[in-house]
Amino acid sequence: MSLSRATITNIFVDNQSNLVSVIILLLIASISVASLFLAAFIWSVKTGQYDDEASPPVRILFDDFKK
């Protein structure tokens, strides 16, 4: 039914080239996720989300007014 423990170990450890490629895959994934966060941070600074820290928490409590 499921993969035996030995098979899993086989995939990751025994086969040298497999280990390297998996780690590289993980590296790319982790760095790109981190870059996403960096981009999100720069975007949030650029759009002025830290300019005014007083009004947004109040503004969200106001009811919307339909014209």
Partner: peptide, 17 residues
């Protein structure tokens, strides 16, 4: 001037990695 904040963000990202 927000450049210092950007520099900080980039440095933090690179430092952690």
């Amino acid at each position: 001037d927000k450049s210092k904040i950007y520099k900080l963000g980039v440095a933090g990202f690179c430092f952690a990695n």
